[in-house]
Design a protein around this nucleic acid. Structure first.
Lengths: 214, 214
DNA sequence: AGCCAAGCTGCAGTCACTGCATAATGAATT
DNA sequence: AATTCATTATGCAGTGACTGCAGCTTGGCT
């Protein structure tokens, strides 16, 4: 139990995006992982199921987990970003938490596959881990967005650079919140994603004043 | 460039702790990684350098990165924990950040090796990543400690369970702060660890009131 | 018909890691 | 001193992820 192997850091990005072949591989991968678990699912099994060669698999996906998690870079939702920037309520952090709600992390795609994928990912701590890691790719973007709101709240003695750093720090705090939600999602026996997001938001609202020292 | 392979999730923990052999392996590993980088350093190279067989390597360390990072479980510093619990200032988060200052994460050990190890780890994003992951092992413990302070600040309508969840959330926020510091440490051209910790603390103190919405 | 780029494939190789079975060492027992 | 036993090291063969390379196929284009 527990074949291992396979780090990150792929060199050249594999080819296509929306190929039919790639979709077949993805759906085979997701299905098999749900059925057997991530570790027990070998690349060869996925290939057999999708009816392609191993070499082809790696022509489409750089790593085994990429086939399950998907390759589209997570992006912040445009409209939510606008709303966030425009808003000016006291709940900056809670507002921002909405920006990175788990569902928002998946690009628009086949909802059926997305649902399955969600199941596959949450079934394996390892995959969840990798999924969370991918979040790092939004952090820079997120920090930039946060900067808009934070700039308005800055005191005169704070330089622009300082505000930027505070924004980055905030983005990291949000990553922590995301991880907390992910934890809750995996350990909590049931609970839907929206429910957890809402719960976390409330919790955060109650918690922050305590942390900030009234 | 970039051999990969090697996931987490080892099954049975390898043997000894402070064997002479294990130390030799560690020091070879650290030295070679500093010299060639993590990816370019193969297990065989480390074995050759340490004068042992590959099988022996894996008898002592479950994974390649374990030999570089070390195997001792990070622990919270007893005295700092006491101080934290006893305190009751307004800066709960900033206070807690001291608990997880990077240097505190390494068990007491040969300072020479520790310094080298630090260099090796910060030289590779992959290793840094793994190092940060190990922090997760303290999170539960950390959350427990935080609970002491947080309980005093709870409102009457909050259940003990709610306080516990808030503590866990706080622990995750701290993990985010740790990651921010680690980022700063790796990107910042120089800057010592204590300097970064202090800076982060100040930044946090300035930031929190803004997030909590005064 | 002739050509070209894209996608698929096999093949051989590297590297991390595992199970198993076998030595070598030394300390504890008889 | 001979025996037993646990610990530690080692070889060996195998699995599984992943890579580079070279060759084949296919469909569209001229």
């Amino acid at each position: 139990m527990s074949r291992t192997d396979a780090p990150r850091a792929r060199s050249s990005a594999p080819t296509s995006r929306g190929t039919a072949t790639a979709r077949r591989i993805e759906s085979s991968a997701v299905a098999l992982v749900i059925q057997h678990g991530y570790d027990a699912t070998t690349v060869d099994m996925i290939c057999a199921d999708a009816g392609i060669s191993q070499r082809t698999f790696f022509n489409h996906f750089a790593t085994k987990d990429a086939a399950v998690i998907g390759t589209d870079v997570p992006r912040l939702d445009e409209s939510r970003v606008r709303a966030f920037i425009a808003a000016s309520g006291p709940n900056l952090l809670a507002d921002a938490a909405e920006l990175i709600a788990l569902p928002g992390l998946d690009g628009a795609m086949d909802p059926q596959l997305m649902r399955q994928r969600m199941r596959a990912i949450t079934s394996s701590a390892e995959l969840m881990q990798r999924q969370l890691e991918r979040f790092a790719s939004i952090e820079a973007e997120l920090a930039e967005v946060i900067e808009y709101r934070l700039a308005r709240l800055s005191t005169p003695d704070e330089s622009a650079a300082e505000v930027r750093e505070q924004s980055r720090l905030t983005a990291h705090l949000l990553a922590g919140i995301l991880r907390y939600s992910a934890d809750a999602l995996m350990s909590g026996d049931s609970a839907s994603v929206p429910a957890i997001v809402a719960q976390t938001r409330d919790r955060l609202t109650a918690l922050l004043p305590k942390l900030a020292g009234r």
